[in-house]
């Protein structure tokens, strides 16, 4: 009865950090003993390409899923979405030691992004393994999620269950051996788009000169050629006006997919205006470095940027006073 089980997938850390491996092993060992939970280990989600057995396994999973990884949940979730492993964003309740209580709930839904398409009726919960070093925190959260999912299934009643059963391709997720799932991967580097933030403005498409971005059949921006991306270069992320582009392995939290931009989570980060302010110039410099490495000519700010500089307010003009009021309203 695998379809009533909760699937838990642990995405390993890159490299061989013994502390990280130990946490991974404690969590999987504990979960193996739990009834109603299928647990599997795969290499880092970010590094698996489309042909990797781990990816094929994930694509075969039909029901609710928990994914534990060493990345920000947003990054993990949208990485899976790009791979066609879709679902609704499941809120996890693991509080980071420094988190304020009420900041987590509203974030994914309230934005003006274009959202995901063809999302099946299931939830994907992404947990960040960097939040805690104690495996019991994750164990408790997985159990909580399992109960939540079981309750949701029960409330939907038998009709949907039948639908799920008929929709499930036979014997899909079952046929992989653990060592196949863990086949070694190379290191990869590419952007991940958060469609809950992305407004399809196409600035990244204009900016990137390496053919990473394209549009799909619905004219939605898509990371078309992931492996055309230049290792270490996060320039398009800096250019994105909505902070929708993530590089999950970048050292800067805001670029790697941290939920909020400011260090405290409660204040505005004005770094962009104060000289980090020249994010565009930095992005152009990073792009030039990669162009020159490829034997191409540096282009500076001359290509793919004018749209932004000539930016006209879209729709009704922004109300300046309202903006200042909003700033004032941030007072704690």
């Amino acid at each position: 009865m695998s379809r009533t089980k909760l699937t838990v997938v642990l995405s390993q850390a890159q490299g061989k950090n013994p502390a990280k491996r130990a946490l991974e092993e404690s969590i999987t060992a504990a979960l193996l003993l739990e009834n109603g939970i299928d647990v599997s280990i795969v290499p880092s989600l970010y590094d698996m390409d489309a042909n990797h057995t781990g990816r094929l396994y994930l694509e075969g999973v039909r029901g609710d899923m928990v994914v534990l990884s060493w990345m920000y949940p947003r990054a993990t979730f949208w990485m899976l979405d790009r791979a066609g492993i879709k679902g609704h964003y499941g809120e996890n309740q693991i509080a980071k030691p420094t988190d304020e209580d009420d900041e987590e709930t509203a974030e994914p839904e309230q934005s003006k992004g274009i959202g995901a398409v063809n999302v099946p009726d299931r939830k994907i919960y992404c947990l960040d393994l960097r939040d805690h070093s104690d495996h019991r925190v994750y164990l408790d959260e997985v159990k909580r999620i399992a109960a939540e999912c079981a309750a949701a299934r029960a409330s939907k009643g038998p009709l949907l269950q039948l639908g799920l059963m008929s929709a499930e391709p036979p014997a899909s997720a079952k046929t992989f051996r653990p060592e196949e799932l863990l086949a070694p991967t190379g290191r990869r580097w590419y952007p991940v788009i958060d469609y809950s933030r992305c407004t399809n403005c196409m600035e990244c498409l204009d900016f990137c000169l390496f053919g990473v971005y394209g549009v799909d059949s619905l004219d939605r921006i898509v990371v078309e050629n992931q492996d055309s991306c230049k290792k270490g270069c996060p320039a398009c992320s800096r250019v994105c006006p909505e902070h929708a582009i993530m590089f999950p392995e970048h050292k800067t939290p805001a670029i790697a997919g941290a939920p909020v931009a400011g260090p405290s989570g409660l204040k505005i980060d004005l770094t962009k205006l104060f000289g980090g302010g020249d994010a565009l110039a930095l992005a152009a410099a990073e792009r030039d470095t990669e162009l020159v490495k490829d034997g191409r000519a540096a282009v500076g700010l001359s290509v793919g940027i004018p749209k932004r500089q000539a930016s006209k307010p879209q729709g009704p003009k922004d109300d300046l006073d309202k903006l200042m009021d909003e700033l004032d309203a941030l007072e704690i």
Partner: peptide
Amino acid sequence: WDNTQRILKGKINSHE
């Protein structure tokens, strides 16, 4: 100024 507002609004929205 337009771009500045966009940055500020982006920051504010991300905190809501």
